[in-house]
Each structure stands twice: as structure tokens, then as C-alpha cells.
Design a protein around this nucleic acid. Structure first.
Lengths: 214, 214
DNA sequence: GTCTATAGTTTGATAGAC
DNA sequence: GTCTATCAAACTATAGAC
């Protein structure tokens, strides 16, 4: 029994290694041709195998996307969960924002797979999606450390950062035009959320025009 | 000569009408199947013609996307340029934000075509793109009326609104979870931009590491 | 301009020998 | 597990009759 179990383990390890190699080739391909341009023929050729062999490791094209998604989500969760050097909540929040934007802009195809729904009928499996949920929980905690516990504030935070990433990718790919605004955005967000929520008052008479001061 | 010119005009009108009908069918198709799923076969069938006839009006599939882009950009420019009921700059800015978000979330395929780069090798022609440039200029003016003339502030504004739209579409399609944050975002943005730009100082006491406070 | 017919590719996926 | 060979279906685009 011992020997057969060891053999099984070894085989399983080989199998996972082969699967990983295919995923590596898949990433290389989508980096060159775009996320949606992944074809099994090109993938097989790049991986040094043939198309049917791909099906020995993945039951469909979507299964490959799913493996890529799972890996990307795990990388993302690990990246944002890495310990922060500071113990100042505000500085940690800023660092978290920077990490998010850097992670997203560093690999457009990965960002599209993880956060946008570029692939037509693809939905990630729960297992692949799990790390993304963890990462969101980490973000929630980061905000809570700063006293921002309102769910609306989490939604604002994600919209803020996604907006930066999206504009950066769409209108200045490879540049820093929107990345440079991170600090400003974090300051803006924190100042806004720290002001006590008075039920709108103000606005005497009328033309407030330039008015708003806090 | 008069008659031949009139005939030419009539023929041209017929031609433009036929082109428009194809574009209408194209929109109907992408609304059902997704922007990238536009195929000339399905398009022809839906338009009540055959594939070669499509090529009598458009020289390629990209030309159809271009016509769709031009129409969408024109609609967008007209939508945001419609006169505002208020003469309060701040209220107009808020209304502009609402219009942008509403326009984008009302038609996801249109948003993807206009503002994201979902179609692989497609780049809109300058003529199709022109209205989008006008609309951006209008936005710039709207900000200027509020005293926000820094180009960075325009970038912040677009990032803010695109972030809302993106999160709304990706994570709550058809809902209002992020749409509801518009007022908050506009208030946050205006308050932030109206505070005088002092060169960072402050925050005694604690090790503030990166220390952004304004 | 509109059709029938089809060229010429590329796609995801499978059968069956080894 | 890996291959050769291939299927069945989709795709964009074109040729040529009418």
C-alpha cells in the first residue's frame, strides 16, 4: 500500500506540474494577443504539446480560464494581504490603495479577467473566486481600522480605485497619468468620510455657486 | 442635370436609410448576445438581408462597429450637452454626473464600445470619435464654471464617474447600488477641490510615515 | 443591389491507434 | 497520456448570376 500511495502522489504531482505549465503558456499567450484571443491550438503549440493533450488536463476552454482566474485571485489576495510596514491605519490604507492600483495596471489581461467580465459565457468557479472574497474582506478591515465601517464607504472605496485603474488602462496604458492621483484620492476619501454626517443643511437663499466649504 | 441630381440625392437617402437599418439590427443583436458576439450572419438575418448585401453598405465588420461608435458618441454628446435647468454651476455639475452615469448604465454594450476597448483590433475613425471629444470639452467647461480648471481635476472627475459606472455594471447590473453614491461623490469631489492647496504639513504626535493630510 | 454558392480560415472538441 | 487525423460548426469575405 505504501508504495502505491507514493506512486499516486508522484503522479499527482506530475499532473499538477503539467497543468501549471499549460497555464503559464496561456498567460504568455493572452499577454501577447489579448485575453479573449486565447485559442487552444495556439496554446498547445506554445506549451509544446498538441490540442488533445490539453484536454487531458482541462475539460474545456473555460476550465483553463478558471485555472487562470484562480491563480490570479490567489496572487491578488496574497499581494494585498502582505504585512504593512506601518502601524498607522491611514498610511496602511494609502499603501493598500497603491498596491491595488499597481497590481491591476501591471497586467491588463489579468485585470480584465479578475474584475471585468470580458469573456463571454465565463463565470469563475466558487473555489477560484474564494481568494477574491478574502481580499475584499481584508479591504473592509483596512477601512474599519480607519473608522470607516459603513458598507457604503466600502463601495465608494472600490469605485474610487477601480475608476483610477480603468482610466489609466483605457486612456494612458503604460503611463502614470491617473496613478499619480492615488494620494489625492485617498486624502479626498478620508476627509469626506471623516466629516460627521449631518443631514444636509445649509444652502441659504440660493446660489451657492462657489460656496461649498466644509 | 436637375433631374439627375435629384435622383442622386434620392438614392443617397435610400442608401443612408438602409445603412441605418443595418446599424439598428446590429444594436439589437449586441444587446442580446453581447458586444463581441456580433456576427455578420446573424446581423444579416436579423436585418432581413443576406451577408453579401451587408458588404454593399459596409466594407468590413469594423466599419459596422465604427458606425455604431459614431452614433453612440453623437448620442452621448447630445445627451450631456442638453441645456441644464439650473444656473447654479454646482447643481449643473451634479446633473452632468447623473446624466453620464445614467447614459452609461442604461446600455452596457454601448458603454463598452465607447469607453472600454472590448473589441480586439477596433479603433474608431476620427469622424466617429469627434463627438466624444466635444463631450469631454463640455465636461471641462462644466468643471471650469465651478472654478476647477486644473487638468488633474478633470482626470479625477472622469475617474470618479467611470469608477461608479464600472462597479455598477460589473457587480450590480441593473441595480442602483453605486448609482446611489453619485451625490456623495460630487460633494466629496467639490469639497476636496475647493480646499486651498497647501503644501502638506501637519499631524503632530504620531508617526505618520507617508503623512498625507491637507 | 441582391441574391446563391462557396472559398478559405479558424474554432472547440473528439476518435482511436499506440 | 500523447499522438495523428478529423469532425462539425462557426466565421469573414468574395465571385458571379440576375
Amino acid at each position: 500500500m505504501v508504495k502505491s500511495e507514493a506512486t499516486a502522489d508522484w503522479r499527482e504531482a506530475r499532473r499538477q506540474s503539467a497543468r501549471a505549465a499549460i497555464v503559464v503558456a496561456a498567460w504568455a499567450l493572452v499577454h501577447e494577443e489579448g485575453l479573449a484571443a486565447l485559442s487552444l491550438r495556439d496554446l498547445a503549440r506554445r506549451a509544446g504539446i498538441t490540442t488533445p493533450t490539453v484536454y487531458a488536463y482541462f475539460e474545456s476552454k473555460h476550465a483553463i480560464y478558471d485555472a487562470m482566474f484562480g491563480q490570479a485571485a490567489a496572487d491578488f489576495a496574497a499581494y494585498v494581504a502582505e504585512p504593512y510596514e506601518t502601524d498607522d491605519p491611514r498610511a496602511a490604507l494609502l499603501e493598500g490603495a497603491r498596491r491595488f492600483v499597481e497590481f491591476c495596471t501591471a497586467d491588463v489581461a489579468r485585470y480584465q479577467l479578475l474584475f471585468q467580465h470580458v469573456i463571454a459565457g465565463f463565470e469563475p468557479s466558487p473555489e477560484a473566486y474564494a481568494p477574491a472574497v478574502r481580499a475584499l474582506a481584508d479591504t473592509r478591515e483596512l477601512l474599519a481600522l480607519n473608522g470607516f465601517t459603513d458598507p457604503r464607504q466600502l463601495d465608494m472605496w472600490t469605485a474610487l480605485l477601480n475608476g483610477l485603474v480603468d482610466q489609466q488602462i483605457s486612456n494612458d496604458p503604460g503611463g502614470e497619468r491617473w496613478v499619480r492621483l492615488i494620494d489625492d484620492f485617498v486624502t479626498m476619501f478620508c476627509n469626506h468620510c471623516q466629516t460627521p454626517h449631518r443631514p444636509r443643511a445649509r444652502q441659504p437663499g440660493r446660489s451657492r455657486t462657489k460656496g461649498a466649504r466644509r
